[in-house]
Amino acid sequence: MSVDKDTVRRIAKLARLALDEGRVEPMARELNGIMAWVAQLDEVDVEGVAPMTSVVAQSLKMRADEVTEGGTADALMENAPGGEDHFFVVPKVVE
C-alpha cells in the first residue's frame, strides 16, 4: 500500500505537526521508500506467533497505592513557556 499526499496530510494532522504544502510531496516519497522497504516483513509467516509484550521475562511490579512524590508545582512551572502562578496559559480554547 502506498502513502499518498492525502495520507501524509491526514497523519500530519493526527500527529499535530504543521506541514508546509511544499513538504507534503517529498515526505510522501520518503515515507513510501521506507514503507516499501518495511514491506519485506509480509513474506514471514507469523501465523500462531504471539506478539512480544514484555522484553525480559518479568511480571509488572506492583506497589502500595500511596503518594510517594508530589507538591512540586513550583518546580513543574519552571520550564513552562506560558505560565502564571500555578497555571499553564494557552490561547483561548472555548469561545
Binding site: V3, V8, I11, A15, L31, I34, M35
Partner: peptide, 13 residues
C-alpha cells in the same frame, strides 16, 4: 524526528 513521528502515527493509525 518528524519523519519518524509520521511513520509511527501511520503504522498505529
Amino acid at each position: 524526528v518528524q519523519r519518524r513521528i509520521l511513520i509511527g502515527t501511520y503504522v498505529l493509525s
